[in-house]
Amino acid sequence: MAKLNGRRLPVGIQSFQKIRKEGYLYVDKTDIIWDMVNNGDQFVYLSRPRRFGKSVLVDTLQMYLEGRKELFDGLKIMDMEEDWTRHPVIRLDMSRGGASVEEIKSYLNNVFKSYEKDYHINISPEDTLSVRFDNIIKAAYNTSGQQVAILIDEYDSPLQHSWKTPEHDGCTAIYRSVFAILKANDEFEKFVFITGITKFTQISLFSSLNNLTNISFFPQYASICGITEQEIVDNFKPELERMGKQNGWDEQETHDRLKEYYDGYHFCEENMVDIYNPYSFINALAQSKLRTFWASSGATSLLPKFVNDLEIRLKDFDNCAILGTTIESSDVTGGGPELFLYQSGYLTIKGYTNGIYLLGIPNHEVRQALYEMVLPENHKQPIP
């Protein structure tokens, strides 16, 4: 948390309720959220890089779907929503699921126990996790009389961390079993929203749940995570002035330096709106410093698992082509290093021609982080 001139920046805060109740600055995405729930499909998947605001988005969705109207006062959604129906919400955060079969089972068991207590569900020792998930969805529907919203955040975290270990096959088996229930219960479900970074297609979310719509490249959702230029103008003028004053920069130089470091992301060839990395941008304003905040938060930890010979190939990644079918639908384990680098935020869309995407490094922060990984420790230097 950072408090500047009476304004609070939500550094590290993922709770929409906390942001709204305690007066933190909130970049209003609620019009996009309303459209996604009410005009989109029932089963939705969104991929964005780590620390790009996915968890805040999921939390905002939960508050909206639970009908928490009081938290949205003054936001765009108030001109759009009329009913504020209270739907039961089942939420899973798979970033807490570990990297082994036992850790995933333990996490799901604990979450399911909580919902079983809420809905007075009796379980027997022979009930599998999939049976328990099925019972929870139906009990939530029967108890409330309303369709259920299911929110699964960072679904791929255990799969990323178990990849290339003996645990991976067992982890995917649990996913196939438990999440196949989603399709079977579609009549009880209002909205199913799943976020992730990388795409593992050989599990039930993508193989069995064949009606899952990947909105990651949809133009209307290009800015659903991250911060746009217009949102900076609308929301952060005092913080920009403060940062400029502390560093001896005028307004234009402050903007240009932040843009060079943290801007440059594009998530749709039809809507090439510039997106700033929100984690780094907010931290930079809070500290009035330009640093590699995103990379320092552990963003590069999984690179060696998915990209071989990074030092040799780094120059090739900054201007590389990838088939549209690969980037939009392929499994990260077989799509090549460019696919992993795009999905995890090291590369971004620079152009698109005849079914082929042109990718490149988005900004100075990412370039610096990548070079620091491949250069020997005693030869590290800032990248111009």
Rank of each mutant, 00 (worst) to 15 (best):
M1Q: 09
K3V: 15
V11N: 07
Y24H: 01
L25T: 13
V27L: 00
D28M: 03
I32C: 01
I33S: 03
I33C: 04
D35S: 12
V37E: 04
G40P: 09
R50Y: 15
R51F: 07
F52E: 04
S55P: 00
L61T: 01
L65T: 10
G67A: 03
L75F: 07
I77M: 06
I77D: 05
D79F: 03
M80S: 06
E82F: 13
R86A: 07
A99G: 09
S100D: 04
S100V: 10
Y107F: 11
L108T: 04
V111I: 13
K113D: 13
D127W: 07
F133V: 09
F133C: 10
F133P: 11
D134T: 05
D134I: 05
D134G: 01
I136P: 06
T143K: 14
T143I: 07
T143S: 15
I150G: 07
Y155E: 03
D156A: 08
G170S: 03
A173D: 11
I174S: 01
Y175N: 00
K183F: 00
K183R: 08
F191E: 08
V192C: 06
G196Y: 05
F206I: 05
L212I: 02
T213L: 04
F217V: 13
F218R: 05
P219E: 14
Q220S: 13
S223M: 10
G226T: 14
Q230Y: 15
K237L: 12
G248A: 04
Q252I: 10
H255W: 14
H255N: 05
K259Y: 15
D263R: 04
H266P: 01
Y279W: 11
S280D: 08
A286M: 04
K289W: 06
T292Q: 12
W294K: 10
A295C: 06
S296Q: 06
S297P: 02
S297H: 05
G298M: 13
A299R: 02
T300H: 09
K305V: 02
F306C: 15
I312S: 11
R313W: 02
K315R: 14
G324M: 09
E328T: 06
V332P: 03
G336F: 07
G336E: 02
N354L: 12
G355C: 00
G355N: 02
G360H: 05
L370T: 15
Y371N: 09
L375K: 14
P376M: 12
P382K: 08
I383N: 01
